[in-house]
Design a protein around this nucleic acid. Structure first.
Length: 434
RNA sequence: GGAGGCGUCGCCUAGUCUGGUCUAUGGCGCCGCACUGCUAAUGCGGUUUGGGGUUUAUCCCCCAUCGGGAGUUCAAAUCUCCCCGCCUCCGCCA
């Protein structure tokens, strides 16, 4: 949610942002209009309410006198009660107007996406800017063999079973078996130990949350169609640990001197993948469920840009350790989620697709989420919302796919990068089981 | 799932039966000031959150806020109903 003060004081800035995203700038005017209406409704209600309170204070003592048989007091009381009765109707009416105006303003503000950073490239999905390229794609022709895709390698290693995943759960589901299962555990351990070293508190959060948590993190807006909802219980399956991590401090006032608070959450992620039919149907690249270790920071808004760079550097540290060729892109405004002011994606090279594909992603949500979730710090003149940022450390399935494809050998085995070996009992390669 | 208890402005707590100076009591903690020759004591003041007004260094004022919502009433922390959360016991279960 954008600060209503910001919209009042600088509506042009918000219009610019909406336009950059390809969203309607007129939504800003709707907010301003609703705001004016609410203010006038509130002032009407307040004066009536004050009048009513005053009246009540006169009635109390009179009632006592009237009960003890004071006829004069009784007459005055009857008169006051008439006034009070009429006033009550007016108060109720004014209150309804305020409530409606509140609802209208709230709805109008929630339509607006976060204000994008000035530096973010403007445009659609294809208008990203490449910031870094790291590592080099292997020349498989020079090595004398054609690379196998991750599905084929997963089969050879006895690591991935998509057929039985489909039999039991449907398309876009999988089993990790044997060395595939071990690889997930190793990646998680490596990610968590790296995060801990970098000052993050490891967290295993709930992956089933109430509407308030989903709503507060902004996933019930434009992304709602990708969220699984449990109708019978009115609960949601999270699509990322970002949701329970952000909501962890919901409705809290944090100690400003303790910021930044950094958490690394390990959770399953559930995604309906509505609207991506026919896209990445092969293997485990795009699935309805996967596990992920997600970084999440609560920090002073003044430090958000710096913290964003830090999260990006941790993502890169992880990819470097896995010895994967990748690039970092600055995602264009039109391709940002509604909560993000800026987003960087790390994309690994997939030799069989001959292109870079997203592996991790980090977003600066500034105070957009914290306003909805009411997460703030105490300041001299009240409270102020904190900034929230998130970043993927490791999305297991895509990372496994990238590792298999990039580190495969002609005989179907896969080399284990040195940094990962300690988490796999020291083995140097995954060997075919068939 | 069943029975019972509880939820008050950081923490603890009074108030709820019997609706109205509740403008929510007291203690602890914290902050400020005063005083005292000393890491302390004592005294005084302040200390929920959100919104609005005024000012914009402050100060002050108004409205709402007693887990959430609905209702009764001229008037709700207080009465009624629904929901949420916590605790105890029982049942079930990994």
């Amino acid at each position: 949610m954008i600060d209503i003060q910001v919209i009042r004081q600088n509506p042009d800035e918000v219009r610019r942002s909406q336009t950059a995203r390809g969203e309607d700038p007129a939504a800003v005017d709707a907010v301003l209009e609703a705001d004016t209406a609410r203010r006038s409704a509130l002032s009407d209600f307040e004066s009536l309410r004050a009048e009513q309170k005053n009246l009540g204070k006169q009635i109390g003592p009179l009632q006592g006198k009237a009960k003890s048989g004071d006829a004069e007091a009784q007459a005055a009381l009857d008169e006051l009660m008439k006034t009070a009765s009429a006033l009550a109707d007016r108060v109720a009416a004014a209150e309804n107007i305020v409530r409606d105006a509140d609802t209208a303003l709230d709805a109008a503000v929630k339509v607006l996406s976060n204000i994008v950073e000035e530096a973010a490239p403007v445009g659609g999905e294809e208008d990203f800017v490449v910031l870094h390229e790291v590592g080099k794609a292997r020349d498989f022709a020079a090595e004398g063999f054609t690379p196998r895709d991750h599905v084929e390698i997963g089969e050879i290693l006895g690591a991935i079973d998509v057929e039985r995943g489909a039999k039991v759960s449907g398309s876009r589901f999988y089993y990790l078996t044997g060395q595939g299962a071990l690889l997930e555990l190793a990646l998680v351990q490596m990610a968590i130990s790296m995060a801990t070293k970098n000052g993050f508190t490891p967290v295993i959060p709930p992956s089933l949350v109430k509407p308030a948590a989903m709503e507060g993190t902004g996933f019930l807006g434009q992304a709602a169609e990708n969220v699984y909802r449990l109708e019978a219980d009115d609960m949601y399956l999270v699509g990322t640990a970002e949701v329970p991590l952000a909501a962890y401090h919901m409705d809290e006032i944090l100690d400003a001197s303790k910021l930044p608070l950094r958490y690394a959450g390990y959770s399953p992620c559930f995604r309906r993948e509505a609207g991506s039919h026919g896209k990445d149907t092969k293997g485990i690249f795009r699935v309805h469920w996967f596990d992920k270790v997600e970084m999440f920071s609560f920090c002073d808004p003044a430090d958000a840009l710096e913290e964003h760079q830090r999260l990006l550097s941790f993502e890169r540290e992880f990819l470097d350790a896995l010895e994967l060729p990748y690039r970092v892109i600055d995602v264009a405004t039109g391709d940002l989620g509604s909560s993000a002011a800026r987003k960087f994606d790390c994309e690994a090279w997939f030799p069989t697709q001959e292109r870079y594909r997203e592996l991790t992603s980090t977003s600066n949500c500034t105070t957009f989420q914290s306003r909805r979730l009411r997460i703030r710090t105490k300041q001299a003149d009240g409270t102020a919302p904190v900034a929230t940022l998130n970043g993927t450390l490791v999305a297991i399935t895509r990372t496994i796919a990238a590792l298999y494809e990039n580190h495969q050998q002609a005989d179907g085995s896969v080399n284990v990068p040195a940094a990962l070996r300690p988490f796999l009992g020291g083995i140097e390669k995954f060997t075919p089981v068939k």
